[in-house]
Nucleic acid binder design. Structure first.
Length: 877
RNA sequence: GGGCGCAUAGCUCAGCGGUAGAGCGCUGCUCUUACAAAGCAGAUGUCGGCGGUUCAAAUCCGUCUGUGCCCACCA
């Protein structure tokens, strides 16, 4: 099956794996993915007997392309579903896209603008038609990129929020909410984007500190005057009052009076309102009910009229010299005019204050009084909060739930109408006599003279709020809905808790009779650059993950992202780290090549324990412990710890030690080599399966080559056999200690790694007798022949290694080394003695801790004795 | 203005009461029966400052400083 990786000159003739010496991801990844899809591995079966495991994808915008944030979340979701599939669940990862109202409409409008046209030139129907065309032609590029990443989604269930079925879901729930009086229409101050020409919800407003200027303007004349401060001078033309605090003595004489509004022929009242902070500015506030949410509230309390002075594009409409000016032009013009009249008392510039911007186009939001549709959020939000409070839905990591509660417990009604054309049109019809009818999906809209449908569409988050069940067929009781709802995990960035997560909770609980849409909400951080800085399109640090996938393979990108995934925390990623991951993939690749060249196999039963060497028992013990560890991390969404554990087990233990030790066995041949081959086969088989959910491509290639089986995608998940062998682990730990210590000596002595040295090994104080051959091999030690003269004797962990360096020994280096070792041992002894002399410690510390210290003391004392003797035996310098 | 979080090796981060860890980077030696995208060995930290609790504190408490994020109707 790896014919695409074969090279004619790939070496040994006997049992040659068809693997080149370097892993070349590009050759493998594309074809593998398409094969998986063709074989239907990712298609879930609603009729299956298996337990379901469901994740719905946070639907990317149709306009979107894959960025690192997607790659990150997709990697984790893919790993979760792939593992569950291997564990025998009916795993469904459902893909799809969001129609993304404003974003998409803007895109197509831009396109039209290039043709010199506007949406009005086309008219609503044609424009919407055009958007659909755009979608067919350019939309959904991200879907191809998801294939590239390796996302194991069920393409047969791909959904789009504007699909017929999903539109029906929207209409159904709208009708239900309307009938339950949870949807209503009202005139309020809303956030208006003068560029997109639509209302937007509170959370679609991004606040940022902008430089403005705070001007103080004198209103009224003489005695009957006061000074107000504002950053929005242009709105003064719409002022209908000035407000002061009721207890503010400075203005007590003015309350209730009318004062002259400059630049107009109007007079406005001075009202008393506790909202005013007497400490701030002059303690007097101009009140513009139609253009400021606070002022609107004041207006309501005092029955003030609202005067709208701008049109939907932010152009002044009041008669007079300022008519036709844009709001920003008007601001400076009006300040200029006031200055001429001597009414500007003070100016402060720049004055930094927080200004709202449209999250879509960054235009400054204009508070605007208008008629909109609202969801009455209170009962829904209550239920959404309770579901988490009573533990039916878990938020992971847990401290993120505070944010969730803060939001759902203080939610304002949700403005759901948008003055756009692209989206779900509100299913309400207005009659000639002022009637309003909400039309359900199975009802006929009213016909006849004078009836017309609401022109507004719904906020795009309205339909995405239905995503966990609309995609499964709701409102029909489909087998999918039956089988796969509620979903298991919602995995998404903490930045859309409010936009999306809370809304799905509200709608899910409401539509599905109190059954929450997911059991667990796993919140991830945001992807950052290698210095922890935010990546954004406007920053040069922004990276296209496709570039990295081209250079290092999808697996490398995936592994890097998973490795950075500490729950809820932001993920820094840099190209160096992707390289490191690629190196890891290459390492596994070569280790598997080595194994195959030495007869590693998965054929037959594992040999019984009696036939296994300590080395074999050690690695199998560690292997099973690693399975258990990996399972724990997978279950807890601890991807950083998971990948770290597998990385170190694979590289440090299997590749650096087990494979190295097994070389001796393989060279010797015979039955032990066979046993080792079977064990190595087992270790790699399991390891590759453990890694497969995170790095599916390399592991698939290697695993199928190793096992000859169809695919790792449908392989069984490894099970911890429970086999542990503490004695073997201890034995190998001692072996490692001996080898490392002697290597350090060799290195200190300046010996070249390959240089053979005659040596005598005394392993009688250890359990390492059986490993002498391996130790000699790892340390390049020759048998001590005729005339052997030990120039250095190294005592390590009960073993003694005597080396003959035939007078070439560097006495000074050795003295230095020994002195250092002696100091370390003495420090250890001192610390341990102190500890053991501490009665409070002995009384309170755990038995194991005390035992550990005793052992340390023992070792230290033995070391001091040996090292002292060695130092004494060194020739004088 | 409120809330939350973070300060540990040059960089990015684990550890969260019992001898300071990882990856990358750095130094030296190496083509050694897979892998130089590698191997072996090595160096590097008063765990942000100051107090406190404890036999024992990077780890718990207080406080200060720096820094990041979220929320809020700062005219």
């Amino acid at each position: 099956m790896t014919d695409n990786t074969q090279r004619p000159d790939s070496g040994h003739a006997d049992r040659t794996p068809d693997l080149p010496t370097q892993y070349a991801p590009a050759d493998v990844e594309g074809p593998l993915y398409e094969r998986w899809v063709e074989r239907g591995y990712f298609e879930a079966d609603a009729k299956s007997e298996k337990k379901p495991y469901t994740i719905v994808i946070p639907p990317p915008n149709v306009t979107g392309t894959l960025h690192l944030g997607h790659a990150f979340q997709h990697t984790l979701m893919d790993a979760l579903t792939r593992r569950k599939r291997m564990q025998g669940f009916e795993a469904l990862w459902l893909p799809g896209m969001d129609h993304a109202g404003i974003a998409t409409q803007n895109k197509v409008e831009q396109q039209l603008a290039e043709e010199g046209k506007s949406r009005d030139d086309l008219g609503r129907e044609q424009f919407v038609e055009r958007v659909w065309q755009w979608k067919e032609e350019y939309g959904g590029r991200i879907l191809g990129q998801m294939r590239r990443l390796g996302d194991g989604v069920d393409w047969s269930r791909e959904r789009f929020t504007m699909d017929e079925g999903l539109s029906k879901a929207v209409q159904t729930i709208f009708k239900k909410l309307y009938d339950d009086e949870l949807i209503y229409r009202a005139e309020r101050i809303i956030n208006w984007c003068p560029r997109c020409l639509t209302a937007i919800s509170d959370i679609e407003v991004e606040y940022q500190d902008d430089d403005g200027e705070l001007v103080s303007i004198r209103y009224g004349e003489g005695e009957d005057s006061l000074v107000v401060a504002t950053t929005r001078a242009e709105t003064m033309l719409g002022d209908t009052a000035v407000a002061v605090h009721p207890d503010d003595e400075r203005y007590a004489h003015l309350i209730g009076k009318q004062i002259k509004l400059p630049l107009t022929d109007r007079t406005i009242p001075v009202v008393a309102d506790t909202h005013v902070d007497p400490e701030f500015g002059t303690g007097a506030v101009k009140v513009t009910p139609a253009h400021d949410p606070n002022d609107f509230a004041i207006g309501q309390r005092h029955n003030l009229p609202s005067m709208t002075i701008m049109d939907e594009r932010g152009v002044l409409t009041v008669h007079g010299p300022f008519q036709g000016l844009d709001r920003f032009e008007a601001r400076s013009a009006i300040v200029g005019a006031l200055r001429e009249q001597g009414r500007i008392v003070a100016e402060k510039r720049p004055y930094t204050h927080s200004v709202g911007h449209c999250s879509r186009c960054k235009a400054t939001v204009e508070p605007r009084l208008s008629m909109q549709w609202w969801v009455k959020v209170e009962p829904l939000a209550q239920a959404a909060g309770d579901a988490v409070r009573d533990g039916r839905v878990k938020i992971h990591p847990e401290d993120m739930s505070k944010r969730y509660f803060d939001w759902v417990d203080n939610m304002h009604d949700w403005c759901i109408s948008r003055q756009l054309w692209w989206g779900h049109r509100i299913p309400v019809w207005y009659g000639p006599d002022g009637e309003t009818i909400c039309v359900g999906p199975d009802e006929q809209p009213p016909t006849g003279e004078g009836w017309h449908q609401e022109t507004d569409v719904l906020d795009t988050w309205f339909s995405s709020g239905l995503w966990p069940f609309s995609t499964l067929g709701w409102p029909e009781k489909t087998p999918d809905l039956e089988k796969f709802y509620a979903t298991d995990v919602l995995l998404t960035g903490h930045d859309i808790i409010f936009f999306w997560v809370a809304r799905m909770m509200m709608f899910g609980l409401y539509a599905m009779d109190g059954q929450a849409p997911f059991h667990t909400i796993a919140l991830t951080g945001l992807v950052r650059d290698e210095h922890g800085k935010k990546m954004s399109k406007s920053n040069p640090n922004s990276v296209d993950p496709l570039d990295w996938m081209d250079a290092y393979g999808s697996d490398a990108v995936r592994f890097t992202l998973a490795r950075g995934a500490n729950p809820g925390a932001d993920v820094p990623i840099g190209e160096d780290w992707v390289q490191a991951s690629r190196n890891f993939a290459n390492k596994i690749w070569n280790a598997t090549r080595f194994a195959l060249m030495n007869g590693a196999t998965v054929e037959g039963e594992l040999p019984p324990v009696e036939q296994l060497s300590a080395t074999d028992r050690w690695i199998l013990s560690r292997l099973n412990a690693t399975i258990a560890e990996a399972d724990g991390y997978y279950d807890d969404y601890q991807f950083a710890k998971l990948t770290d554990a597998l990385y170190h087990f694979a590289w440090d233990e299997v590749f650096d030690w087990y494979v190295e030790l097994s070389k001796t066995t393989f060279m010797a041949g015979g039955e032990p080599a066979k046993v080792s081959g079977r064990v190595l086969g087992e270790v790699l088989d399991v390891l590759l399966r453990l890694l497969h959910p995170v790095i599916p491509f390399v592991t698939e290639t290697l695993w199928t080559t190793l096992t000859g089986k169809e695919s790792a995608v449908i392989a069984a998940w490894p099970k911890d056999s429970g086999f542990r062998d503490a004695a073997a682990e201890q034995e190998i730990a001692v072996l490692q200690q001996v080898v490392t210590e002697v290597r350090r000596f060799r290195s200190d002595q300046g010996l070249q790694p390959g240089q053979r040295v005659p040596a005598q090994l005394d392993l009688s104080g250890t359990a390492l007798a059986a490993h002498e051959g391996a130790i000699r091999q790892l340390l390049r030690l020759q048998p001590a022949g005729e005339g052997f003269h030990a120039t250095a004797t190294l005592p390590v962990a009960g073993a003694t290694v005597a080396l003959d360096l035939s007078g070439t020994i560097d006495v000074e280096a050795e003295r230095k080394r020994l002195t250092k070792a002696l100091a370390a041992a003495e420090k250890d002894k001192a610390q341990s003695t102190a500890k053991l002399g501490n009665e409070a410690f002995l009384a309170k510390a755990a038995e194991a801790a005390v035992e550990k210290i005793r052992k340390r003391l023992e070792t230290a004392e033995a070391d001091i004795e040996r090292i002292t003797a060695q130092l004494a035996g060194l020739p004088k310098g």
